[in-house]
Design a binder for these strands. Structure first.
Lengths: 222, 222
DNA sequence: TCCTTTTTGTTGTAATTACAACAGAAATGT
DNA sequence: ACATTTCTGTTGTAATTACAACAAAAAGGA
């Protein structure tokens, strides 16, 4: 557990909390680290969630399956991100997503019930933590709206250009790597993979973008 | 101002806060009520937001305009909802949406800066408020994911069925009113209005749904 | 009431997409 | 290095959609 302290300390979740406080809080919240392997379900649609999941290492896809069996990728999460945070606030809310491990991952798991009841008045750190939770959810909210913008474009071309432009702005650069392979990107943008590949080629041949595997270059201002 | 107290008191934002506390907090946060008319911009894309907006009465559309000039309706908000809450957490974040008044609306406006600095240690209500903020954002998060589910369906038919099914579940009934007119619903689901009308007619003729104006009846389990 | 405006429904056509099937490239394991 | 598997790109066709143009219905105002 101790070997993860530095990682945990630097997460937005524990931002503004000192080392000794952190140690006490982790005990208080029954914190432990769990390993997941490729394909493992960390959160399953329909479950009731009362734990806070913090990714220490690895990659997690937030997905949904349609009634007709198609996969929707809502977002991809990395180290320092929380999984399903919006589900712990209200008890009796069923998870509306699946959280799937991609490759190996290390997840810190905290008991939010203990966090919210035992510390309500006792811990002065509780207010720092809940303030952090608010900030984290705010960021996630903004990212979800960005995703809505991406997939709300009319054509495959517009979806790609909007997505790539947004990624460029996030990286503050015209050169960046995207976190998806082609099939994942298609499932994220809700389009057919082969049609997407075709459109990417077209954009490349027109000189608007360049790419090799996951590395993209934007040659235009959108 | 006093005449709005009962409305304000019953909002999720001030849940768990007593009457006297509320009065003190409203003064402390420089709270005031502002009237908006149809088409007024409450929040404009690109602005930096440092105020909390609480809808006391009326209807507000959260929208985005695409690069190509098309309207995207992200969500429709009503009394007791907050506008752009995710924007106040981090200063220097530019609004990624427009908030437009639909018809008349009454909005309570609070100064979040005062709320977060002055009360950091002084007010014990601050922690209640920030806990409420977390819960509100959680709910919004879940709704955004639901919207993503709706618009991620492949065909117009699937989008309509998914949307109507989700609305039915929310109302816990097969009979319910939707908050959108046809054009708004099309802009919410990112589809063409006329094509949507055509598909609605088809669903009605097939006996899967029934509707008249905004009142819908689901005749199947989805 | 009548007229005007707004909203909703209908239809045909051009554009776009999904899908399937396959080829080529890259990655992986032995 | 080779075989195998996974990932990416290409193409043709059927299905779906956007768009425009218009008709019908409903709502609102004088």
């Amino acid at each position: 557990m101790e070997k993860y302290y530095s990682k945990i300390k630097n997460s937005p979740l524990f931002c503004g909390i000192t080392d000794e406080e952190l140690e006490r809080m982790l005990k208080c919240f029954g914190g432990y680290v769990k390993k997941y392997e490729d394909g493992d379900m960390i959160i399953r649609q329909g479950e009731t969630i009362s734990k806070i999941y913090l990714i220490l290492d690895g990659e997690v896809n937030i997905e949904k399956e349609t009634y007709w069996g198609r996969r929707i990728i809502i977002q991809k999460l990395y180290a320092n991100n929380n999984i399903g945070l919006s589900l712990v606030a209200s008890k009796n809310v069923e998870a509306n997503i699946n959280a799937l491990c991609v490759g190996h991952a290390l997840i810190l798991i905290l008991n939010y019930d203990k966090c919210s009841t035992m510390c309500q008045n006792a811990c002065m750190h509780h207010s720092v933590l809940i303030s952090n939770l608010f900030k984290i959810l705010s960021k996630e909210n903004i990212e979800l709206i960005e995703k809505i913008e991406n997939i709300s474009q009319k054509t495959i071309r517009d979806k790609l250009l909007t997505y790539l432009s947004n990624e460029g702005q996030k990286h503050k650069s015209n050169i960046f790597e995207i976190p998806f392979n082609r099939q994942e990107l298609a499932d994220y943008l809700n389009i057919d993979r082969s049609a997407m590949s075709f459109e990417l080629s077209k954009l490349k041949s027109e000189g608007l973008i360049n790419y090799k595997k996951n590395k993209f270059v934007l040659k235009v201002e959108i």
